[in-house]
Every structure is written in C-alpha cells, then in structure tokens.
C-alpha cells in the first residue's frame, strides 16, 4: 500500500520534474535577478504537481517551490534541508517546520514519519547516525511547537535514498534533508 503510494508519488514528482527542471531553475535565477514582483515566464504546470527544489544562488540554501500547492501538498512536499555534516535546523528549516506544526494542529488525524537523509559524501554508517539526528531534530522542533510526540516517528536512511543521484553541489544540497511520510 505504502509502496504503491511511493511509486505514484515518485512518478508525479519525477516525470514533470524531469521535464521542467531546466526551465524551473532558470526561472528562479531570473526571478532573483529581477527587482519587480512580476512573475517570470513560467511553463504550464498542473496544479497538483510538486516542483523540484530550487537551489538559491549565493548561500547554497535550498527551498521547495510550493507555489500553487494546497496546504496538504506543501506539508508532504516541502522538505527541511541541512548544511553539510550538520543536524541543526537552519532558520528556513524552522520556518518550514512551523508550517508543518500548524498543519498538524489543524489535522489531528495526521501521523507521520520524519525520514532523515544525507548526501553521498561521508561514510554509510556515519551518515546513518547523521540522518537519525536530522530526523530527531526536526521531530523535537515539532514537539516544541505542541505536536504530540506519538504522532511523529523517525527513521534514518543515511545516504541510501538520495533525491538526486548526481554528484554536484546542487544534488548534495537536495539530498541533505528530512522528508515527511504519512504513517
């Protein structure tokens, strides 16, 4: 059941992702370069399609473009990203988790697993502990915001389930993450 869900999710994520990766990234860069709020020339996207995360220009921070997503889609698709070999939350990570805590407050039937992931650099076993710490720090933050501890499980996949198989700074940044999976 869960597997099926994963496959569906993966298809929904990957195929349009592959199609629009190039244009999305360009769009982000263009937007940053512009001073006006005028939306750039975006390709047509189905409303329910999550977008590939976008790497920011200078500081390497990474965000998921949640434009057009429902609250629920944002909850499951907006990941928390980390710095290399760090399990502490960035300011933006805390912002994302605050949104997740709000969503869980509004939806009492939601039980989740936070999956901790790492980039391929570093060694398997160490990355399993690092992924565990990332998932734990995300969970603690949710608990601090009032989410009941029994609603959040954690698991670490270390470097074993990259979101991006590449070996670039951008791929690594996308892979250092915790994701939310419905229980």
């Amino acid at each position: 059941m869960r597997k099926k869900l994963w496959i569906c999710l993966a298809l929904v994520l990957i195929i349009p992702g592959l199609l629009f990766t190039v244009s999305c990234t360009t769009t982000a860069n263009e937007q940053e370069g512009e001073t006006s709020d005028q939306p750039a020339d975006t390709p047509d996207q189905p409303a329910d399609t999550p977008v590939e995360p976008v790497v920011g220009a200078s500081d390497g921070t990474i965000k998921v473009n949640t434009e057009g997503m429902t609250k629920e889609q944002i909850f499951y698709n907006e990941h928390v990203y980390f710095e290399f070999d760090k399990a502490s939350l960035t300011a933006y990570g805390q912002e994302v988790l605050t949104r997740k805590a709000e969503f869980m407050g509004e939806n009492a039937d939601v039980y989740i697993t936070m999956e901790g992931h790492c980039d391929e650099r570093g060694t398997n076993e160490y990355n399993l502990t690092l992924g565990d710490k990332r998932a734990q720090s995300a969970k603690s933050f949710l608990i601090d915001l009032g989410v009941a501890a029994n609603r959040v499980s954690t698991v670490s996949y270390g470097e074993e389930r990259p979101a991006d198989e590449g070996s670039s700074e951008e791929a690594w940044a996308k892979n250092r993450r915790t994701t939310v999976v419905s229980d």
Binding site: E125, L128, T129, D132, T154, S156
Partner: peptide
C-alpha cells in the same frame, strides 16, 4: 530491531 538505529 530496537526503536531507532541498529547499525554497525
């Protein structure tokens, strides 16, 4: 198979 990590 305890809760959490069981590794290395």
């Amino acid at each position: 198979a305890k809760k959490g990590l069981n590794i290395s």
